[in-house]
Design a protein around this nucleic acid. Structure first.
Lengths: 355, 355
DNA sequence: AACGGCTCTGAAAACCTTTACGCCCGCGCT
DNA sequence: AGCGCGGGCGTAAAGGTTTTCAGAGCCGTT
């Protein structure tokens, strides 16, 4: 495959120009296509570049060009199916326009988040996407306001996915799912199946995403004419382990429920296992719904009824919206729709305990 | 948070130097720490930098410095649990040393892989990690030989995770799991449980990773004194859907097996569902083992006995080894160990059909 | 007192590309 | 024939940082 003289050191545009018998200016124009060049000259340059296996230096290019085509997506962990899907969406949308996508994992540590954003400023990323619900405390607001202004001043855009902007005039774009609507719909689904005593498993007070789901859950109960006391929220947080632990305890403590609304599918996974371990059956004894519709949800036992939040689409939307109309985007708030996916984890409540 | 004069345009080291009353050379030395600077001066510079909210320009830095601290990990898709774990390992190990980690998803398309590697050359990545088994054909060998030489000539290192180097003197480092040993062990586990008719579900002829697992499977059968005909490999490829389809067909066609060795856990997920759909029970009627031990494997129904391939460790090892002794690393081949995780998807073969 | 060596610092080059500016030439119009 | 215009192309500057080289000042030694 035509590797002529891959001498040591990198081939520069100077050498390409020399070989093609033109100046570096002309070579640059021919290679980048930024400026018209007669076909014959252009062909000569391209030929020389190919012969020499020339590789443009992105740094030199970015240095003179100002910014660079790079997007960054920051998540808690890459291995969470939901975050992975969002990252994939960002990567795909970025790749479609020839952009680079770098990912940062914070492990939930604010310090690492700050370091990463700082790094992105140094790298000249033009788009930073922070993904995932958070506890919205004072520290968070300050931190994000700082990011927003810092990035804004270097001409980069900040997108918050599933987390709130700290204020209306902060130069950040919010894109998220309508958690409240989704939770309301899936709760309504349980209610219309006959359930009245539904436990919400996986609350995380202060976390805006979870709080919204809890709000939707409460709203659905109210829609159905149930009193506020009907709501029973277990604040065990997210994750498979948390769901397993909380469900195990709950089963030991009470029988006063016929259905479980898990804060996300991983919680549901843990809960399903706990229920099975306790010798109860889903959905005959207890109905379960989850949230997010991760790829394996249909392989749970039984296949999980859940709310599909098209995570990859969230990632794509974040990039698209941020890049579409940069002016209008700042401060905007976009809600993405969700829908229920009915599978087999919901049934009628057991006759004896219907109400 | 002390944002003084974030005027338009970026703050350069020149302004920092000016404010601190030193030259850019001294400022650079104080900021980068590459060269000793008296504490008092150093403090003045740091103070000025903080006051001005100075952000170093990574491009300028990389331009003069030659390379840059950046690793790239290339996978088929980010949403596959296994790849996600590898990527997380790379990211973590990179972050530990202050490196950046960019990820590329190819969707299995060689064209996109080539484009991405090219992009990494332009960006000056110092480490490119290609992850995932492949069909080792002539095109593959040519492609990778090209990568290896191209990257090598720009001083970058190439690591192949779970895929072969096209030749012994190709400047690439191979890090992978010992697929053959893992498959042999888990097959032996089935054999010692009494199974004799074991189907391997998920072959993918030419794919080196799968071929190695099949080889391990055959070796275990031979170890047990079984004739080569005892091996039954279904070449359905990987993925949940493939596993489901192949298992459904197999159940329709024959009863001549008591255990299934799924090529990976996703295949196992599909197979488990197909078995359940057919009204058979695991492990009472059919035993199933998987491969990789993805996070949700313990939530399968029943919890899946599988081979743990510490994927995150694979990613970390790839970075560590490549960066440890760059000289010695080229052409080296590292095998990482695996071990069985016994759960509940394996039992004795049904009495009537033990042999 | 002179000199060697050390520390601190600054001027300037180098890294590679893009682009503003301007030159030269040829063509078409008057 | 002269002039204006525009296409093609080269020169040089700019972009921000690191690093080399060398100068300056100081201390200790002879």
């Amino acid at each position: 495959m035509g590797n002529d003289m891959v001498s040591k050191g990198r081939v520069t545009i100077r050498e390409v120009a020399e070989r093609a018998g033109v100046s570096t200016a002309t070579a640059s124009r021919a290679l980048s296509g930024n400026h018209p060049v007669p076909p014959a000259t252009r062909a000569r340059v391209l030929r020389a570049a190919r012969d020499l296996d020339y590789v443009a230096n992105a740094h030199a290019r970015a240095l003179v060009g100002g910014g660079r085509k790079m997007a960054a997506v920051v998540v808690r962990q890459v291995t969470s199916p939901f975050y992975a899907q969002v990252a994939e969406g960002v990567e795909a949308e970025a790749a479609d326009r020839g952009w680079l996508c770098v990912v940062g994992a914070t492990g939930g540590d604010a310090q690492r988040e700050m370091e990463f954003v700082q790094l992105m400023r140094e790298e000249g990323a033009r788009l930073v996407i922070l993904v995932g619900g958070v506890v919205e405390d004072e520290a968070y607001r300050e931190r994000v306001a700082h990011y927003a202004h810092a990035l804004d001043s270097s001409g980069a855009r900040l997108v918050l996915c599933g987390r709130p902007a700290p204020g209306p005039e902060i130069p950040a774009l919010v894109v998220e799912f309508d958690n409240e609507a989704g939770a309301r719909a899936v709760t309504a689904h349980l209610l219309s199946a006959g359930h009245r005593r539904i436990v919400f498993l996986g609350g995380l007070p202060g976390n805006t995403a979870l709080d919204a789901r809890v709000a939707g859950y409460r709203a659905a109960l109210a829609d159905h004419g149930l009193p506020p006391e009907a709501a029973h929220v277990v604040d065990c947080g997210l994750g498979r382990a948390a769901g397993h632990r909380a469900m195990t305890e709950l089963l030991k403590r009470t029988d006063e429920f016929t259905a479980v609304f898990a804060g996300d599918d991983m919680v549901a996974a843990g809960a399903l296992r706990a229920i099975a371990d306790a010798g109860r059956r889903v959905p005959d004894d207890i109905s379960v719904v989850g949230y997010n519709d991760i790829p394996l949800a249909e392989d749970f036992n039984p296949p999980l009824t859940t709310v599909r939040t098209p995570a990859e689409e969230l990632g794509r939307a974040a990039v698209r919206i941020a890049l579409r109309d940069p002016e209008h985007a700042a401060g905007a708030h976009h809600l993405l729709g969700t829908h229920i996916v009915v599978r087999e984890s919901v049934g009628a409540p057991p006759p004896g305990r219907a109400l």
